[in-house]
Amino acid sequence: MSRRYGGNPAGTVILIIADITALILILWIAFYLFDANTANGTVSWVHDAANWLSGWSHNLFSIDSDNWRTVVNYGLPAVVYLLIGHAVAGRVGRS
């Protein structure tokens, strides 16, 4: 972990935030695909957080399959947050 998150402390914070954000979105995709109980507090919290984090990408594409729609609506923001977070952390680390 020290190697991946080592270096500039600001860059480290940005990387950790980007990774946690993507993890929340990916967790919701897994919970949805495996039909997790949404009455469970943890599942409900992850769903609410994922909805908030991915609000800008909902219904960006017209997809008939509920499973694929969920993967795209939550997976796209996960990838975007990772790419932007890691790019910004890289720039911060060089300065």
Score class of each variant (00 low, 15 high):
S2Q: 05
R3A: 09
R4Q: 06
R4C: 02
R4P: 00
Y5C: 08
Y5V: 07
G7L: 02
N8I: 07
N8W: 02
P9K: 15
A10C: 09
A10P: 00
G11Q: 06
G11N: 06
G11Y: 05
V13C: 01
I14S: 09
A18P: 09
D19S: 14
I20R: 01
T21D: 03
L23Q: 02
I26Y: 05
W28D: 13
W28G: 00
A30G: 09
F31M: 10
Y32G: 00
Y32P: 00
L33E: 11
F34Q: 11
F34N: 09
F34T: 15
A36T: 04
T38Q: 13
N40P: 01
N40V: 05
G41S: 13
T42E: 00
V43W: 01
V43A: 15
V43L: 01
V43R: 03
S44V: 03
V46E: 04
V46H: 06
H47S: 14
D48G: 04
A49G: 03
A49V: 11
A50W: 01
A50C: 06
N51R: 08
N51D: 14
N51H: 14
W52A: 12
W52P: 00
W52G: 13
L53E: 07
L53C: 07
L53N: 04
S54C: 10
S54F: 01
S54M: 03
G55C: 02
G55W: 08
G55V: 12
W56I: 03
H58Y: 04
H58R: 13
N59I: 00
F61A: 13
S62G: 06
I63W: 03
S65Q: 11
S65M: 08
D66H: 11
N67F: 05
N67I: 00
R69K: 15
R69H: 10
T70G: 05
V71C: 06
V72C: 05
V72E: 00
V72S: 08
Y74P: 02
G75Q: 04
P77W: 03
A78M: 12
A78T: 10
A78H: 07
A78L: 07
V79P: 07
V80W: 04
V80E: 05
Y81C: 07
Y81P: 01
L82Q: 11
L82R: 10
L83N: 04
I84K: 01
I84S: 00
G85K: 02
G85N: 13
H86D: 11
H86K: 07
A87G: 11
V88H: 03
V88E: 04
A89Y: 06
G90L: 07
V92G: 07
R94N: 12
R94W: 01
R94S: 14
S95A: 12
